[in-house]
Protein backbone atom coordinates (compact mmCIF):
# COMPACT_ATOMS: atom_id res chain seq x y z
CA UNK A 1 0.00 0.00 0.00
CA UNK A 2 1.33 3.44 -0.79
CA UNK A 3 1.14 5.96 2.01
CA UNK A 4 0.50 9.63 1.54
CA UNK A 5 3.45 11.93 2.13
CA UNK A 6 1.73 13.42 5.17
CA UNK A 7 1.24 10.01 6.78
CA UNK A 8 4.88 9.17 6.21
CA UNK A 9 5.96 12.53 7.60
CA UNK A 10 3.96 12.05 10.83
CA UNK A 11 5.16 8.44 11.10
CA UNK A 12 8.80 9.48 10.71
CA UNK A 13 8.46 12.51 13.00
CA UNK A 14 5.52 11.93 15.32
CA UNK A 15 4.54 15.09 17.23
CA UNK A 16 3.87 15.20 20.96
CA UNK A 17 4.77 11.62 21.83
CA UNK A 18 4.62 10.91 25.53
CA UNK A 19 2.45 10.79 28.61
CA UNK A 20 1.16 13.07 31.34
CA UNK A 21 0.38 11.91 34.85
CA UNK A 22 -3.11 10.55 34.42
CA UNK A 23 -3.96 11.39 38.03
CA UNK A 24 -3.24 15.10 37.48
CA UNK A 25 -6.64 16.85 37.80
CA UNK A 26 -5.87 19.06 34.79
CA UNK A 27 -5.25 16.01 32.55
CA UNK A 28 -7.89 14.13 30.60
CA UNK A 29 -7.00 10.72 29.19
CA UNK A 30 -8.66 8.98 26.26
CA UNK A 31 -7.77 5.34 25.69
CA UNK A 32 -9.54 3.84 22.69
CA UNK A 33 -9.28 0.79 20.46
CA UNK A 34 -8.25 -2.72 21.41
CA UNK A 35 -5.03 -4.72 21.06
CA UNK A 36 -6.97 -7.55 19.43
CA UNK A 37 -8.07 -5.17 16.68
CA UNK A 38 -4.55 -3.96 16.09
CA UNK A 39 -5.11 -0.35 17.18
CA UNK A 40 -4.89 1.30 20.57
CA UNK A 41 -4.60 5.07 21.00
CA UNK A 42 -3.89 6.90 24.20
CA UNK A 43 -4.43 10.63 23.88
CA UNK A 44 -3.96 12.98 26.83
CA UNK A 45 -4.95 16.63 27.10
CA UNK A 46 -3.73 19.15 29.64
CA UNK A 47 -6.54 21.61 30.12
CA UNK A 48 -6.52 24.99 31.90
CA UNK A 49 -9.21 26.09 34.33
CA UNK A 50 -10.53 28.28 31.52
CA UNK A 51 -11.11 25.16 29.42
CA UNK A 52 -8.26 25.73 26.98
CA UNK A 53 -6.14 22.79 25.85
CA UNK A 54 -2.61 23.94 26.61
CA UNK A 55 -0.81 20.71 25.79
CA UNK A 56 -1.46 17.28 24.31
CA UNK A 57 0.40 14.00 24.18
CA UNK A 58 -0.21 10.62 22.59
CA UNK A 59 1.00 7.06 22.32
CA UNK A 60 -0.36 4.73 19.67
CA UNK A 61 -0.13 1.02 18.96
CA UNK A 62 -1.25 0.68 15.37
CA UNK A 63 -0.36 1.10 11.76
CA UNK A 64 1.28 4.17 10.25
CA UNK A 65 -2.08 5.76 9.52
CA UNK A 66 -3.17 5.32 13.14
CA UNK A 67 0.07 6.88 14.36
CA UNK A 68 -0.31 9.77 11.93
CA UNK A 69 -3.99 10.35 12.85
CA UNK A 70 -3.21 10.61 16.54
CA UNK A 71 -0.10 12.71 15.97
CA UNK A 72 -2.13 15.12 13.84
CA UNK A 73 -4.91 15.22 16.45
CA UNK A 74 -2.47 16.35 19.16
CA UNK A 75 -1.21 19.09 16.87
CA UNK A 76 -4.68 20.36 16.08
CA UNK A 77 -6.13 20.42 19.60
CA UNK A 78 -3.35 22.45 21.16
CA UNK A 79 -4.65 25.92 21.90
CA UNK A 80 -8.26 24.94 21.21
CA UNK A 81 -11.09 25.30 23.69
CA UNK A 82 -12.82 22.12 24.80
CA UNK A 83 -15.79 22.95 22.61
CA UNK A 84 -13.62 23.52 19.56
CA UNK A 85 -11.82 20.20 20.12
CA UNK A 86 -15.15 18.43 20.48
CA UNK A 87 -15.98 19.72 17.01
CA UNK A 88 -13.08 17.93 15.28
CA UNK A 89 -14.48 15.38 12.84
CA UNK A 90 -12.73 12.27 11.63
CA UNK A 91 -13.44 13.34 8.05
CA UNK A 92 -11.14 16.33 8.53
CA UNK A 93 -8.35 13.95 9.52
CA UNK A 94 -9.08 11.73 6.51
CA UNK A 95 -8.86 14.76 4.25
CA UNK A 96 -5.70 16.18 5.78
CA UNK A 97 -3.82 12.86 5.70
CA UNK A 98 -5.34 11.55 2.48
CA UNK A 99 -6.35 8.29 4.13
CA UNK A 100 -7.68 5.50 1.88
CA UNK A 101 -11.09 3.93 2.75
CA UNK A 102 -9.48 0.96 4.51
CA UNK A 103 -7.80 3.38 6.96
CA UNK A 104 -10.81 5.50 7.84
CA UNK A 105 -11.20 3.64 11.14
CA UNK A 106 -7.85 5.18 12.21
CA UNK A 107 -9.32 8.66 11.93
CA UNK A 108 -12.45 7.55 13.79
CA UNK A 109 -10.26 6.33 16.62
CA UNK A 110 -8.46 9.66 16.78
CA UNK A 111 -11.78 11.53 17.02
CA UNK A 112 -12.94 9.10 19.71
CA UNK A 113 -9.68 9.57 21.60
CA UNK A 114 -10.14 13.37 21.72
CA UNK A 115 -13.72 12.95 22.91
CA UNK A 116 -12.66 10.31 25.41
CA UNK A 117 -9.97 12.55 26.87
CA UNK A 118 -12.38 15.48 27.24
CA UNK A 119 -15.02 13.25 28.84
CA UNK A 120 -12.42 11.97 31.29
CA UNK A 121 -11.37 15.53 32.14
CA UNK A 122 -14.98 16.61 32.67
CA UNK A 123 -15.72 13.58 34.84
CA UNK A 124 -12.68 14.37 36.97
CA UNK A 125 -13.77 17.99 37.35
CA UNK A 126 -17.31 17.01 38.26
CA UNK A 127 -16.01 14.58 40.83
CA UNK A 128 -13.61 17.16 42.29
CA UNK A 129 -16.39 19.75 42.48
CA UNK A 130 -18.75 17.23 43.98
CA UNK A 131 -16.20 16.35 46.63
CA UNK A 132 -15.52 20.04 47.29
CA UNK A 133 -19.19 20.75 47.89
CA UNK A 134 -19.66 17.82 50.19
Amino acid sequence: MAYSEKVIEHYENPRNVGSFDKDDPSVGTGLVGAPACGDVMKLQLKITDEGIIEDAKFKTFGCGSAIASSSLATEWVKGMSIDQAMGIKNTQIVEELNLPPVKIHCSVLAEDAIKGAIADYKAKRAKANGNGNA
Binding site: V32, C37, V40, T60, V108
Partner: peptide, 24 residues
Protein backbone atom coordinates in the same frame (compact mmCIF):
# COMPACT_ATOMS: atom_id res chain seq x y z
CA UNK B 1 7.73 0.71 21.61
CA UNK B 2 8.48 4.23 22.83
CA UNK B 3 5.34 5.14 20.91
CA UNK B 4 3.29 2.21 22.18
CA UNK B 5 0.75 2.72 24.99
CA UNK B 6 0.68 -1.06 25.42
CA UNK B 7 4.41 -1.25 26.05
CA UNK B 8 4.11 1.59 28.55
CA UNK B 9 1.31 -0.22 30.38
CA UNK B 10 3.24 -3.49 30.36
CA UNK B 11 6.28 -1.69 31.81
CA UNK B 12 4.05 -0.31 34.57
CA UNK B 13 3.01 -3.84 35.38
CA UNK B 14 -0.55 -3.46 34.08
CA UNK B 15 -2.00 -6.72 32.82
CA UNK B 16 -3.36 -5.86 29.38
CA UNK B 17 -5.85 -8.69 29.68
CA UNK B 18 -7.38 -7.08 32.77
CA UNK B 19 -8.51 -4.05 30.77
CA UNK B 20 -11.94 -3.99 29.19
CA UNK B 21 -11.19 -2.83 25.66
CA UNK B 22 -13.86 -1.36 23.46
CA UNK B 23 -13.70 -3.47 20.33
CA UNK B 24 -14.22 -1.50 17.17
Amino acid sequence: RELSPLYEMAQQGIDLKSIVWAAH
